[in-house]
């Protein structure tokens, strides 16, 4: 399915608190997991595409369900942030407001410079307004884009 036609609602559902047992991974989710498990030299996001006909949904699945090794979820998140940020924006914004998504939120801050400025600002603002603000603020303040860094600078009274 082209990512542009993905339903944001489906992504939001995938993002949810998920009290129910996780479904078993599909073959494509399993294939992505196997590709991302290596310690060094994982495939690029583009190289993952042939492994899944529903790449964005599968990557979101990995962020929520691949607990070990820890870097599989992080790599899946990075792929969403760099190559599929428009389709995954609800998920990304969701991370910024979740205290149990600190790792994903930190990765998102690092990738803000790869987003259109308005999108980056929205993600940054979501982080600064949420429970991870204390952690994210100094990272956002370090960003090279002045417009983004300024969001983390206290306004003089």
């Amino acid at each position: 399915m082209p990512t542009s036609t993905l339903s944001s609602l489906a992504l939001i559902a995938a993002l949810g608190a998920d009290p129910a047992p996780s479904p078993s991974p599909s073959p494509s989710q399993e294939a992505l997991y196997r590709a991302l498990v290596v310690r060094e030299g994982a495939p690029t996001c583009a190289e993952l595409a042939p492994l899944s006909p529903t790449l964005v949904e599968d990557l979101v699945y990995l962020t929520e369900n691949a607990k070990q090794p820890t870097w599989v979820g992080i790599r899946a998140a990075e792929c969403l942030l760099t190559d599929h940020q428009e389709a995954a924006l609800p998920v990304i914004i969701g991370w910024m407001g979740r205290s149990d998504a600190k790792g994903f939120a930190l990765v998102a801050v690092e990738k803000l410079d790869r987003m259109p400025i308005d999108r980056a600002k929205a993600v940054a603002r979501a982080g600064l307004a949420g429970p991870l603000a204390e952690t994210l603020r100094p990272r956002i303040a370090r960003l090279p884009q002045a417009e983004l860094a300024a969001l983390a600078t206290p306004v003089a009274k």
Binding site: T70, W71, G73, A77, W95, A101, K102, G103, F104, L106
Partner: peptide
């Protein structure tokens, strides 16, 4: 450290 803590950062 983030890669080793995972998405939850803990």
């Amino acid at each position: 450290w983030v890669a080793n803590a995972g998405g939850d950062g803990t």
